[in-house]
Amino acid sequence: MAKIFRPFLICALGAVVVTTPAVAAEARVAVATNFKSTIDEIEIAFEAQSDHEIIVTSGSTGKIYAQIVNGAPVDVFLAADQERPRRLEAGGRAVARSRFTYAIGRLALWEPGEAETGPGRLAGGDYRRLAIANPDLAPYGVAARQVIAALDLDDATEGKFVFGENVGQVFAFVRTQNAELGFVALSQLLTMPADVRGAYWTPPQDAYDPIKQDAVILARGADNEAAHAFVEFLKSDGAVAIIERFGYGTE
């Protein structure tokens, strides 16, 4: 063997020696974008009390789902809905009975330019645009429609809607003032400093179906210790406290 390869060989051997006896494992966790800032904090807490590590990627629930179906290397999936994890479980791509609700999204009507907002604002009609997530694409869009219907505001809001692909986009529409108000996720607002947040109103939970976000262990992670340890941690009091602090409900 050429001399030049020797350092690499030594490194490689070293790596084998170092990693083989360790019990720590690594899991790949794909998470819906709305949960990204929350999971960053959960990851820190998890890795502080465990030898295991997780690698987090984020994206829209629909795209992650399509990637998993097409063989993406994901061990744990934290979706923004129940539908996709359910399908993965039914299709045998997820570990049976590993599915559970890790967070319940809460909707907020946000109007940064005002000191106060609420259903009265929607009814008054004194605004040009009301941004909501596209109900065909995003659970927060469905919830926004339900709230509007529950408050009997269909006529007042008629023709004012603009649709974001997801709540992230709705947030951008309102933040850049192109829409005066919009239905976003409470968790998005709580990541903002309070002094720039402006007014928001959280509709009562009985005005819309709970936005349940389910997690599932995928077939690839069935024997991955880190994946199981992380999911257990996600159910722990410590993780639940973080999840609730970011504006989600839990079961």
Binding site: F161, E165, Q169, A172, F173, N178
Partner: peptide, 8 residues
């Protein structure tokens, strides 16, 4: 268009 259109 996705970013500025609002899909109306």
């Amino acid at each position: 268009v996705l970013m500025v259109g609002g899909a109306i």
